[in-house]
C-alpha cells in the first residue's frame, strides 16, 4: 500500500516550498513599494490576500511538496483573492447593488469570503489532512525515539556561535 506522501512524491514536482518563498519575498517587496507610493495600493490588496496562503503553503509543505494540502491551499487562495478582488470591484455599489442576507452585497461578500468560508476551509482542511500529511503517528514515534536516544546536552551557545 502506497502512503499518501509516497504517492504525491512520484506525481508532484518539488516546487511548493520554493513557490511559497518566492511569493512571500515578492509580496513583501511589492507591499513596501506601495507603502512609499511607488505602486498602486490595489497591488498591496492583492498581495495581502496571497501572503497568508503562501505562508500556509510553506508551513504545510513536506520535502517541498504539498500533497493533499494542495487543494486546501488552492481553495483558500481562490476564496481570499476572489473576495478581495470582488470588494475592489464592488466599491461604491452599496446603494445600487442588491442585498444579500439583508446587507448590501459588498458587506455580505466581506463576511462570507473573509470570515465564514476561510473558517470552514482551514478548520476542516487541517483536520482532513492531519493524519495523512501534517503529523503521522509513525513520524511522531520516530521523533520521540530519536529524542530518547540522541538528545543533545542542553547548552547555551558560546560566543563563537554568533
Amino acid at each position: 500500500m502506497v502512503n499518501v506522501q509516497e504517492r504525491y512524491a512520484v506525481t508532484r514536482p518539488m516546487t511548493a516550498k520554493r513557490v511559497s518563498l518566492i511569493l512571500l519575498g515578492v509580496s513583501s517587496l511589492v507591499a513596501l513599494a506601495t507603502f512609499v507610493g511607488l505602486l498602486s495600493p490595489v497591488l498591496f490588496a492583492l498581495v495581502a490576500g496571497l501572503f497568508p496562503v503562501a505562508l500556509i503553503g510553506l508551513g504545510a509543505s513536506r520535502k517541498g511538496r504539498l500533497g493533499p494540502m494542495v487543494w486546501v491551499v488552492l481553495a483558500l487562495a481562490v476564496i481570499l483573492e476572489g473576495t478581495i478582488l470582488g470588494l475592489l470591484l464592488l466599491r461604491g455599489t452599496v446603494l445600487t447593488g442588491p442585498a444579500w442576507l439583508g446587507l448590501p452585497r459588498v458587506a455580505a461578500l466581506q463576511l462570507l469570503g473573509l470570515f465564514v468560508l476561510p473558517l470552514v476551509v482551514t478548520g476542516f482542511g487541517y483536520a482532513w489532512t492531519f493524519q495523512s500529511w501534517t503529523l503521522r503517528d509513525e513520524d511522531l514515534e520516530r521523533l520521540r525515539a530519536r529524542a530518547k536516544v540522541g538528545r543533545p546536552a542542553e547548552k547555551v551557545p558560546d560566543e563563537g556561535d554568533d
Binding site: P52, G59, Y126
Partner: peptide, 15 residues
C-alpha cells in the same frame, strides 16, 4: 477581526 477565521489554521500549519 475577521482574519480570525483562518489565523488559527495559519498558526497550526506554520508554527
Amino acid at each position: 477581526s475577521i482574519p480570525v477565521s483562518f489565523t488559527a489554521g495559519l498558526l497550526c500549519w506554520v508554527v
